[in-house]
């Protein structure tokens, strides 16, 4: 039994979640403040992976990063980076594909915080950054955890987009969801069963954990 697809999937999900935390926090903060036409367009673009067929996203990424032309050719020639049929490509696709799962909960949590919290901090002479780190961020912890877990779980379950840009290369781009498909194609139901059960179990534990944590957080502290 080859467990490499499972390790590869977990590695991909960890890297994607960490990268999205770094990218997602400032972007969600920026999106949560005010409304402009430009922000609406950016928000629509980062939300589109939620509704767009993954194969469409994968197809466009394949075109954009093909080493034969455009950005892909430039990246290959200048930095020797290839996004197509490589693990880097999977990370890039996962970051784009899972972005709404990171941004959504963080943005709405930030919007729900009373504006007077920031104002109180500003009136004490604290900068926007100090306010974000010391006041806003600690008060959206449950949403932050939800966002991180949803992103992780969603990355575990990717199929169409990773197949399009990464293909099915063992130890490089064959993640667990693709290994399930591959095993079924080869009539290896035992392997398909094992991969599926592991994915199912990890996702179940993660999502249940988040629900328990959030229930605990929401409970009145005086109870």
């Amino acid at each position: 039994m080859d467990f490499n697809p499972i390790w590869l999937t977990l590695k991909l999900a960890c890297i994607t979640t960490l990268l999205l935390l770094v990218i997602g926090l400032p972007v969600a903060w920026w999106l949560s403040k005010g409304r402009s036409f430009f922000k609406i367009i950016i928000e629509a673009i980062v939300t589109m992976p939620l509704v767009l067929p993954p194969s469409v996203l994968g197809f466009y990424l394949l075109l954009a990063f093909s080493p034969q032309h455009g950005a892909g050719k430039w990246l290959q020639q200048t930095f020797n980076i290839q996004f197509v049929f490589s693990f880097q490509g999977l990370v890039l696709a996962s970051v784009i594909y899972s972005m709404p799962f990171m941004l959504g909960p963080i943005k709405s949590a930030l919007q729900q915080l009373p504006v007077s919290l920031s104002q109180a901090s500003y009136s004490l002479g604290k900068s926007r950054w100090q306010t974000f780190i010391r006041v806003l961020l600690p008060n959206i912890k449950p949403s932050l955890l939800t966002a991180a877990v949803l992103t992780f779980a969603h990355t575990l379950g990717e199929f169409g987009v990773v197949l399009m840009i990464g293909g099915n290369i063992p130890n490089v781009t064959r993640v667990a969801s693709i290994a399930v498909y591959d095993a079924v194609e080869q009539m290896d139901y035992h392997a398909a069963n094992v991969y599926s059960f592991i994915l199912f179990a990890i996702t179940f534990v993660l999502v249940t954990g988040v629900f328990i944590f959030n229930k605990y957080q929401l409970k009145s502290p005086l109870e």
């Binding site: 009373p114 007077s116 919290l117 104002q119 109180a120 901090s121 500003y122 009136s123 004490l124 002479g125 604290k126 900068s127 006041v135 008060n139």
Partner: peptide
Amino acid sequence: PQKRMAGFVFQDYALF
């Protein structure tokens, strides 16, 4: 507001 540093007591308290 950071430069004015006016003390402000909010109606909703705005405690952290």
